[in-house]
Design a protein around this nucleic acid. Sequence first.
DNA 1: GGCGGCTGCCACAGTTTTCTCACACGCCAG
DNA 2: CTGGCGTGTGAGAAAACTGTGGCAGCCGCC
Lengths: 236, 236
Amino acid sequence: MSRVLVIEDDTHIRDLIVLHLGLEGLDTEAVGDGLEGLARAGAQAFDLIVLDLMLPGMDGVSICRSIRREGPNQDVPIMMLTARREESDKVLGLESGADDYLAKPFGIRELVARVRALLRRPRRSQLQAEAAGAGDRPIEIHGLHIDPSRRRARVRGADVDLTAQEFRLLFVLATHPGIVFSREALLTRVWPDRTYVTERSVDSLVKRLRRRIEVDPADPAIILTVWGSGYKFADV
Amino acid sequence: MSRVLVIEDDTHIRDLIVLHLGLEGLDTEAVGDGLEGLARAGAQAFDLIVLDLMLPGMDGVSICRSIRREGPNQDVPIMMLTARREESDKVLGLESGADDYLAKPFGIRELVARVRALLRRPRRSQLQAEAAGAGDRPIEIHGLHIDPSRRRARVRGADVDLTAQEFRLLFVLATHPGIVFSREALLTRVWPDRTYVTERSVDSLVKRLRRRIEVDPADPAIILTVWGSGYKFADV
DNA sequence: GGCGGCTGCCACAGTTTTCTCACACGCCAG
DNA sequence: CTGGCGTGTGAGAAAACTGTGGCAGCCGCC
């Protein structure tokens, strides 16, 4: 189930959005404050973020930039909302890194349709970078050494063989220690193309990965289960 | 500052692209007509060309071929855009000499990311020069002695005859021990002209190379398969 | 303690990826 | 023109990996 974060101060609109996205089968979480939204976005991986441009305390553009700069939602589609109709706003919104833009007042059905479209759109940035062979630096964490360009992982000094998929999962989690990823979030981040794959498969993959890197797979110390939410890499 | 030529008839998309590439610090020039684009490409050297597949008057594939055939932009990376999602289009685009391909509707951020990637990637001509190894020093690794300037390879003391292609493959891999190369990456690095070649050919070439340098070709110790990713030269 | 919902686990069928091979084609020297 | 060599390709076999469903066990809550 896709997770959506809604950042919107107007209670009425917020509830409306949550209601309708909920009816669409999306797991929707909403906050009314910019800073809180930013905190939420930094702590958990979502599949899409709906963001109001006009917020008390902190404006949407800054939030958008922050989200894009780093963290688990760097590559997540962002849908901007704004009360103003001016073209300059539109430009501003897209400049700051939003993927789509909707001017208030909008029809809720249109919002839903666009959200669906954004979710459907394959996310390729990460895969793309990997394919280009550019950029990914090795990381070192928790006694783990992970080197993407060599596709090599070492645990406590010993090399472990990982399949391509196990490796991607480990990499995604390890680069965001402490961040909770829902199964859905992992599906879009780890699976090469988001065909019809059950969330069950995530469990399987996690189990396989644990078997290879955990000292005691029955009592995981690295890949942790967050009951009711998903999985996370152990905090530092 | 890199110069980019955008050939796209849809005004909205064109402006969006120009805006964002401009924000990226690229010097962007745009035309809405295929013939005009061709004229522009013939008159001036760019660092990258973004080309819509569907254009009024002249289709993108023909333009792509024209640009590739001669002129100052023969070796410049070309990024294809298309409204259609069919695989056949993709093949058509890449066959005609495009370097990357993006199906509409696309996220503007993805376009920017890919453009960046293409610009980062060294030109074909440079690659070929690098692969040909003109003027490179001989290297010694894993009981292998490889001398690019003489195009000679010795394995465990014995000279081996390698074809030009086998040699290029060996050289590319041996100069980056441990680094995993996807088949695609090898195609652009080893093959003099990347058009009309399938990834199967990489398999074949690897097999032929192994037959010549491995003690037991059935159980390779030098050129290793990285399942789901590609091939690599054995780590030291 | 009982209950509903979530997660761990497992085997195996199914899928994807790689390997192997034979053959055809193009190129070049003789 | 002809033969030899290097190379690309497709098909089928082989190998590796992965998704799934169901059940058992665990968690949090009433």
